[in-house]
Design a protein around this nucleic acid. Structure first.
Length: 306
DNA sequence: GCGATTTGACCGTC
DNA sequence: GACGGTCAAATCGC
C-alpha cells in the first residue's frame, strides 16, 4: 500500500525517526493555483517535500567517513531542516514575526513568536498564546547586548544537529516551566560562543518550546575545509547562497505581485526554500543531490510496486 | 574514570 | 532587593 504524504496532517515531521525509504509517494510537484490559499497550500506542499529531501540528504551526509566533515555537513542539513520547518510554521500561522538579526548562514530566520507576548500558532495549526511576560534585555555579563540570532517556537528543541551542553536551569518569574541554559559543546575546545535558552511554552501534547539562540556557531566553520580544498564539496555553505532578490524568486510565477499583502508569508517561506534549493543546485553539491535523487527514485519504485 | 547533568550560590543589571 | 544568567562543586550514568 502506498502511503500518502500530502494527505498527512500538519504535524511536524519527526526527522530523527524517519528511515530511508520513508519518503512518501505523492509528494510530486504541486500545480500553481490562482488563489492565495492555493498558493499557500502549494508552498506548504513544497516545503514538506523539501523537509523530506533534507532528511534524505542528512542520511546521505551521515555516510561521510571523516567525523569532522560529517558533523559539519549534518549541522548544515540541520539548518536546512530548521529553515523549512520555520517556513512551514509561517505559512500555517499566516503571520510573520521576525526576531533579531538573521544572517545568510542561518536561513531558518523566521519565528512564530513575538517577544512582546504576542500570539503564535503551533505546527499542527492550533493557536499558541504566549503569556505576557516581562522581557529583560539580554545582556552579557559586562553589559554588552547579546546578539539574539533567532527565536523559534518548536516541539523539538533538541533537534538542530548541534552539540549542546546544559549549564544551568532557572525558575523564571511567572513562568510555569523553568528555563534551561545550554552552551555549545565546543565552547571550551573551540571557544564557540553559541548558546541557547529553552523554555517550555505550553502543556500541549507534544509541548511547545521557545528556543532562543544566542551568538553564531563558530565551531562548525573550524571544521570546514579551505576554499581550494578538493574535499570541500560535501560541506553546504549558506554564506554563498543567493540573495533574496535572486532571479529564482522572480521566475516563480505564482509569486507575482498580485495579492501582495496576503502572499507575504508565502514569499518569505518560499524564499527560504528557494535559497536552500539554490544552494543544493551548486555544482559542488551535485554529487550528494544526485545520490539522494537516485535513492529517492529507488524508494518511489518500491512504493509504486507495493 | 570521564563526560554530562544538576543545583545552589554568586554576580550583574534593573 | 528582585530577577535572570552563569559558575562550579556535587552527583549521575555510561
Amino acid at each position: 500500500m502506498v502511503e500518502r504524504f500530502l494527505g498527512q496532517t500538519q504535524a511536524p515531521i519527526q526527522t530523527r525517526h524517519t528511515r530511508p525509504g520513508q519518503l512518501r509517494d505523492g509528494c510530486c510537484r504541486r500545480r500553481p493555483s490562482s488563489s492565495t490559499s492555493g498558493r499557500r497550500d502549494a508552498a506548504i506542499q513544497d516545503l514538506r517535500r523539501g523537509t523530506q529531501l533534507a532528511e534524505l540528504l542528512r542520511q546521505q551526509v551521515e555516510l561521510i567517513p571523516e567525523p569532522n566533515r560529517r558533523d559539519a555537513a549534518v549541522a548544515n542539513v540541520g539548518e536546512i531542516s530548521m529553515a523549512l520547518e520555520s517556513s512551514l510554521s509561517i505559512l500555517q500561522s499566516g503571520m510573520v514575526s521576525e526576531v533579531g538579526e538573521v544572517g545568510m548562514a542561518a536561513p531558518a530566520a523566521a519565528a512564530t513568536y513575538s517577544s512582546d507576548g504576542g500570539t503564535g500558532v503551533s505546527r499542527n495549526g492550533g493557536p499558541v498564546v504566549s503569556r505576557t511576560r516581562r522581557v529583560r534585555h539580554r545582556r552579557a555579563r559586562h553589559g554588552a547586548e547579546l546578539p539574539i540570532i533567532k527565536e523559534i517556537l518548536t516541539e523539538a528543541p533538541e533537534n538542530d544537529c548541534f552539540h549542546w551542553r546544559k549549564y544551568g536551569e532557572k525558575k523564571i518569574l511567572n513562568d510555569e516551566h523553568p528555563r534551561l541554559y545550554y552552551k555549545c559543546g565546543y565552547s571550551d575546545d573551540h571557544k564557540c560562543p553559541a548558546k541557547k535558552y529553552v523554555q517550555q511554552q505550553s502543556n500541549n501534547d507534544p509541548p511547545l518550546f521557545m528556543v532562543t539562540l544566542i551568538n553564531e556557531h563558530t565551531c562548525d566553520t573550524l571544521f570546514r575545509d579551505e576554499p581550494n580544498s578538493s574535499s570541500a564539496s560535501q560541506v553546504l555553505d549558506f554564506t554563498k547562497a543567493p540573495p533574496l532578490s535572486h532571479p529564482l524568486i522572480a521566475a516563480t510565477p505564482w509569486l507575482k505581485k498580485e495579492e501582495e499583502e496576503e502572499s507575504t508569508s508565502v514569499t518569505l517561506a518560499t524564499t527560504h526554500w528557494l535559497r536552500t534549493w539554490a544552494v543544493l543546485q551548486r555544482p559542488e553539491h551535485q554529487a550528494l543531490v544526485l545520490e539522494a535523487s537516485q535513492r529517492l527514485g529507488k524508494y518511489r519504485r518500491v512504493d509504486a510496486t507495493a
